[in-house]
Design a protein around this nucleic acid. Structure first.
Lengths: 111, 111
DNA sequence: CAAAAGGTTTGATGGTCATCAAACTATTTT
DNA sequence: AAAATAGTTTGATGACCATCAAACCTTTTG
């Protein structure tokens, strides 16, 4: 059970976070992470419908920007949002983005 | 005194706004707009130190994403943040970004 | 009218990025 | 030991983007 490297809280950069959250696929991934806090990468990747190498790239971008942290358990990776770190570094930002992301693609409107 | 076209409030897209705010130069521009609500484009462009055609491109990106509105007065353009529209569409998002941008910038501590 | 001022538009250029496929690594299961 | 699982890495490709320079447009000023 080890953790993949990510930037310390005080070195998280605004432009990098904004960049990470500016892609539709990554926006959808963080929306899913917000709803299901402990989904493995594979499940998330399948939900958004991209190739696994593409998903891997997106998870790396999110992690290196400081948005997520990744925990390796055997051959499975769990990704979760760095809520407290982001709240301390950029208060209200993640909450506002998540709220907007949920409003933009409501789960309840699925047939 | 006419206004350049921009997307109506309900058609502003999250990914487009995030994209617009993911560039360091545009982030600096909106930070300046937050501090000085009525600066003409030329002054802002000079503050961030880019070529005027580059500045023009950035102002267009901000306007077309829904972040700003532009008013033409003679040969001068005034750009301002669409605060109410953004607050209604994505509550708290612009505030959080502006707060983060000000905190990140060593120049002045508050608007 | 001519010149200046404030921007926009149009290339051209270099860089970054999202995507997929294929090969690879590491762990677990059979 | 072999196969399956979960992902990463490494190209390759095509798209988009930030930048500047030069020409252009519109409005104001001399």
């Amino acid at each position: 059970m080890r953790e993949l490297p990510h930037p310390p809280r005080d070195e998280i950069e605004l432009a990098a976070v904004m960049q990470a959250l500016a892609d539709p696929v990554r926006l959808e991934l963080v929306r899913l992470m917000d709803s299901d806090a402990a989904a493995p990468c594979a499940a998330l990747a399948e939900s958004v419908g991209v190739h696994k190498s593409t998903a891997s790239h997106h998870f790396r971008t999110l992690r290196e920007s400081g948005v997520t942290t990744t925990i390796v358990d055997g051959r499975i990776r769990f990704v979760r949002l760095r809520r407290e770190a982001l709240q301390e570094r950029f208060p209200g930002l993640l909450d506002a983005v998540l709220r907007a992301a949920h409003a933009n693609s409501p789960v309840s409107s699925r047939p």
